[in-house]
Design a protein around this nucleic acid. Structure first.
Lengths: 219, 219, 219, 219
DNA sequence: AATGAATGAGTATTCATTCAT
DNA sequence: CATGAATGAATACTCATTCAT
């Protein structure tokens, strides 16, 4: 799937009748690139227009304001960061169907899933990481998404494994904090802070899983 | 030590003859506050001047450009983030004097030290975290500082404990990555991402140390 | 006669073969409303299009420019302001047929006639009053219309009554100025400046006639 | 008194400590000229700046918005239109001191006073006449000023002369309407609508007074 | 040293108009 | 005929920076 098709898919979500035109894609591609390079505030609509190969007015035909453009880029992504569609699958596997996934299999699945997501969406992620600090509405959208779609389910999962005795009996939310910061700490280092360094991804992933498992398993 | 004196100390470093005037302190205080609230690009010098209680022109008498003002705030902090002055102390204790500090005592010291640092410098840290992504010069300054003052020493320390058999035999830099992301992951969550939530700091610190130790210790 | 039909009649004048379509009427209705509310310069064609329920481009299919749209609205009205069709009738009655209309009957007829005209065309009048100051072409059209169709005839009429001794012997054009400003002064107050106040129209009209008659009659 | 000094005097009113700078005067002069020529909406700040010989930014240093500039021009004039300072004088003469001014002397004074005012402030008046229709706040300011400073006093005066039997016994406010429209009708014709025509001002003023007096006096 | 008026390039946004469908 | 996406020039306004006082 080409990058164009990929972006198209993401941004057409939820407005399936409203076609996203060729030019709109170009605008979004340009905006993503420039926003992630210089930040929202320092990006100028004229530069975006030039890079997208459209007239400046064209941007405002599709997005009422510069902020609208930002949100149209970010909103559909916010949900996706928070937790994978796949999540549903293994939530079911674990909690409903009681299939015997061990905790490290869960961690491995999550890590791989997020690894791929971050790898494919690095610029979008950079934008969110940068801008979430300055746009309260965005922060709230994110928190809501996290609470509704991830946090509660993570708690169930962790408690399940704590009950089974696979992981240590410390406050559930501390467990979650540690898992989440370790995973995203790795991914942010890997793709955002020092992407230019050489990474042996397979090894680092395995080490990260091991680190989490040792950190949390009983004895 | 009042906050004014604290800032004075930080920003006088390295230019001990150049007095930092009352007004300059006011400007820096205002700049730190506004930069951390809205980001460098979205902050206006006129707003900073107003908050500092000086005329617009006065800022430019002390700092040639807006960017100079940013760097004058950030540069002296960059070093301090990277690693504690204290480091020298325990590097000596560990590597030179061969005092018998265990690895978890090291981790505990580091964590407490960084905890206090981040707690006392949250706004400065926020600025750096935000702006480092957009200013290459700043990124390089940081990397240099990290390499020169922290990384090599951390390697020595980690290798020392790996040799002693206290921690597992995985690539040294992976150990460092995991320690660093876990510690800063905690601190960033604690002070920047969800500072408004209630934190039982003592407990979380202990859990974090435990997590790192379990994650890295042999067996 | 519905308002639609009324507008249709006005704007079809002079181009009897060119049908005025349903959409064109809608456009004109919308334009009249918006021009009179916010003025020509502050009205946007896109707002007019939206209110008319047509596409933005449709306006420009019928009117080459925004200014064309303005003139197409105003030109047919300019003549009608200046003097009533009815005028021909009483010019004939007075000057040609020498029927014995007294001067106050003339004034009364004019006043009633203009009263009805202004009442039925307030928004159009507002537009003209506003825009005539800024569009020289329009001003000239108006002056020409006034000179050709009203002024000369008014002079004849006034001189006729001066000769008959019904009105005082001051410069004819001063008489005209006073009659005209008194009548339009009343109508503009009544319909444009303070239309929201309660008006006893019959009484005010009679008083106005009386005022003019006393002001101009001999002794 | 040069025009510069005249404008200075008007616009410094009420903020006597705040000096009005040379540049500010230039800006106001340019704004008055351009607003009156093309109307507020069609006037561009860049054109005003160019005509004033200042940078565009300079306008906004003195007036936060274009609308502020408009109001700073208009507000001090609104009061002055409504009624002359002199008014106080003859109100006293007539109502308090019972000096024996006849009604036509009152009318003559008013007319001369307003004649001079309009003559000296034609462009400002044009602006107000044009813009009052589109800016509700301005309309309200004007109505308030009129009600507070003119209307009630005019009623007293007119009732005084009606009681004395000098003018006819029709509703007081109709008298006022007729006087006001006749006077301003004349002045607007004279200075705004056809200023280019040759006017014998003395004669027209006398005729206008005569017209009003005949129109209103008993028999 | 400090001020703050002045600058002018730059910003997001609007709008009349064009044109391919 | 009608549409509405696209244009690009123009708009009000902001801002870092300069400089005379």
């Amino acid at each position: 799937m080409s990058e164009q098709e990929w972006l198209k898919e993401i941004f057409e979500q939820g407005k399936k009748d409203q076609k996203v035109s060729e030019k709109q894609i170009k605008i979004i591609e340009a905006a993503v690139e420039i926003f992630s390079e210089k930040g929202y505030a320092a990006a100028s609509t004229s530069e975006i227009a030039k890079k997208a190969g459209v007239a400046e007015g064209t941007i405002f035909r599709h997005y009422r304001t510069k902020k609208d453009l930002l949100y149209s880029i970010i909103t559909p992504t916010l949900l996706k960061i928070v937790f994978p569609v796949v999540a549903k699958t293994f939530i079911k596997q674990v909690l409903v169907k009681h299939e015997d996934l061990s905790f490290d299999e869960i961690i491995r699945k999550m890590l791989f899933n997020r690894y791929n997501f971050v790898k494919n969406n690095t610029p979008l992620l950079k934008i969110i990481l940068q801008e979430i600090a300055f746009h309260d509405e965005m922060k709230m959208q994110f928190q809501e998404a996290f609470m509704d779609h991830a946090y509660n389910k993570l708690i169930e999962v962790v408690e399940y494994y704590q009950a089974k005795g696979e992981i240590i009996d410390i406050p559930t939310k501390s467990v979650i904090r540690m898992v989440v910061t370790t995973i995203f700490g790795f991914l942010i280092m890997r793709f955002i802070i020092v992407p230019e360094s050489e990474w042996n991804d397979e090894e680092e992933i395995e080490l990260t899983i091991q680190f989490i498992m040792n950190g949390l398993s009983k004895k």
